[in-house]
Design a protein around this nucleic acid. Sequence first.
DNA 1: AAGAGGCCCTGATAGC
DNA 2: TGCTATCAGGGCCTCT
Length: 287
Amino acid sequence: MPELPEVEIVRQSLNKKITQKTIKKVIVRNRNLRIKIPLNFKKILENQKILNVERFSKYLILFLSGKNKLLIHLGMSGTIHLLENNKRNFFSNMSFYNSPILPYKHNHIEIFFDKFRLVYNDPRRFGFFEIIKDQKSLEKRFEKLGPEPFNSSFDINYIYENLKDKKKNIKNFLLDQNFISGIGNIYASEILYMSKINPAKEGRSINKTECKRIFKNSKLVLLNAIKRGGSSIRDFKDVLGNKGSFQNNFKVYQREGQKCKRIDCKGLIQKKNISNRSTFFCSFCQK
DNA sequence: AAGAGGCCCTGATAGC
DNA sequence: TGCTATCAGGGCCTCT
């Protein structure tokens, strides 16, 4: 589900609801997420106040009143849902994998506040919760990640210098979190369409003009997606149940066989596997 | 050392 | 109806 825009939407709605709230109780139903939940997890979190909810790339960062920070990654199928404490966990409006018949399925972690609780649901368990000890460890945790498209160190020169002698295709570059962080499989296709670059094109054959388009469009596409509440291609919603609408603005993603949206282009959108991930593009206007 | 591929896991859907 | 195969928004590890 979540790339940078979706995580940002979750961050915004979560931040509004839980800032300055104190954690009263934590329930861990399944410790076996991508990273195993440590035994002292509850103890660390209980009685902590949430100071702020931030985000880097696809990671949520909950700043706690002690020095600890809680890092949350949603993986492929993780969702966060806020539920009033007097309500049962009936199928959540956030969890597209959740069956209405099995209300508690995959609700691995619950964090209780006074009047409501945060429910973490994740069928595939590729997501994780991680306790980070202090600010220094947080910086260390992210040190290998590349800049976000909005970061000032992500400029045309940075792109060009990284691509110039590489055989790796540009689609894989955009998915490489150590080069640029926050872009996932949907937005990689969308950014390359906007930039008129074929996703299979090798890094070394991308010129400065094309770097400039990547620079511009990676910001533009992500910002537009955030503006529209993210992409709800299955059933993504924010923590209060509001759907995003950027899926209605997809130019290529999941549009195989349909007409290219560029005026005067007669191309049809193609689907191609690149490193086992489906990739959508127009072979007419993406060169 | 760069880059491709496998793997972690469950569920929805398509095809027979 | 029921089986199997394929695919899904991520990221880490291993192998060449």
